[in-house]
Computed example of a mutant assay.
Amino acid sequence: MTHHALLLSAPGPKTNWAGMPTYNTIIAVTAGAGLLLVVALGYQLLKPGRTITPDGWALAFGAIGFVLVVAGLHMVLTWPLAGGGFPQNNIAFGEPAVLFGVLLLAAALYLWKRGADINSANRVVHTARVTAPVSLLVFGVGLACLGIAAAGWKYTLFAAPPQEPVAGKFARWPWLETSFVSAAYLLVGVGAVLFPFMLRRPRGRAAQVIGVAWGLSGLAFFLFGALAYFTHIGLIMNTK
């Protein structure tokens, strides 16, 4: 059982939630949506003759990127979860959120300013060339996500306390939720690490692996975050 679970499993637990703002609900939903949209845009780019409306994608990426950067930066700069006994979650959720958010904002800016390029005859090759420099950062994000996944499994970081509705039912098996969240990070990491190599052959097998990895992880984070709106509110009500 993690320090988080131990903290909240004592008789009559009380938690200072006012001094410990938590953003992994909105971060999970928006990050999941962002991953799913990246996969969807990549699929459309690779479909010959498919017309893409860049303004719509710019709006979507910009909105998601803004939320991730704002919420993630607050976690990175203030470490709000440190006071509750699990500062590691500031790293595990806040820093990837900032990195992914910045990447989405960059994509939104490009689509807004140069969106017509993604409907050109050689759009796949052109997009690969434009994306090549930033792929180094994507690769680094992938390595970070692999590290978070490994730390999650080793230290059982993401186990829910027994006071949390739904997930708390499995508190006696802390590896269960830990494995779910760590597996999602693992899939994000695998896709991101493959990303620079995929740009050499955008229609190759690596693109398919990335699509599956980011699609599954995006769906996992999206649904996990949506469910967390209920479970985290319930946790607060049970421990305030």
Rank of each mutant, 00 (worst) to 15 (best):
L41V: 06
N89D: 14
F100R: 03
F195H: 04
L137K: 07
T51G: 13
T25C: 10
M75Y: 15
V76Y: 02
V134S: 09
N122D: 12
N238Y: 08
V70D: 14
V212W: 10
T53K: 14
L7T: 14
S217W: 01
F230E: 06
A5F: 08
L73Q: 13
G234L: 00
F197A: 15
A40Q: 02
V102R: 02
A121V: 13
I27W: 09
R203M: 04
P87C: 04
V38T: 01
L227C: 04
A97F: 08
F195C: 06
L146K: 07
L6T: 08
T239E: 05
F139T: 12
L235S: 04
K154H: 10
G225C: 09
V70E: 11
G204E: 05
L136V: 12
I118Q: 06
M75I: 02
Q208L: 14
G94L: 14
L146P: 03
A213D: 15
A92N: 11
R123C: 05
Y155G: 14
L59T: 14
G72A: 14
A92F: 03
A184G: 14
V76I: 08
V39K: 11
W112D: 12
L35W: 02
N122T: 02
H74E: 07
L103N: 07
Y110R: 01
T127L: 01
G85I: 08
N90W: 01
D55L: 12
V141H: 13
A121M: 09
L219Q: 13
V125I: 03
A31Y: 07
G234C: 00
F66T: 13
A60C: 01
A128C: 00
V124S: 04
A144Q: 14
A192R: 06
P162C: 05
A28Y: 08
A63L: 13
D117F: 02
R50H: 13
I27T: 11
R172E: 12
L216W: 09
A159V: 02
V76A: 12
L109T: 07
T22I: 06
P162K: 04
A183F: 05
P174K: 02
V138A: 03
G204P: 13
E177N: 14
A106Q: 10
F230C: 00
G19R: 00
A167N: 03
V124N: 03
Q44C: 11
F66N: 13
R114C: 09
T25N: 15
R201F: 10
L35R: 11
I91G: 03
L59E: 01
S135L: 03
Q44A: 06
T78H: 15
A92S: 11
A58R: 00
V193N: 04
L36D: 00
H3L: 12
I210A: 01
L143F: 01
L81W: 14
Y229V: 01
G12E: 12
T178Y: 07
N90C: 07
I91R: 10
L41T: 11
I210M: 04
F61N: 00
L77F: 07
L109W: 07
L59N: 07
A167V: 03
V39N: 06
A160C: 05
K113V: 11
H3I: 09
P202L: 03
Q44F: 05
Y229C: 08
A228R: 14
G115M: 05
C145V: 06
P133W: 00
L176M: 10
W57D: 02
V67S: 09
I27V: 10
G34M: 00
L45E: 05
A97G: 06
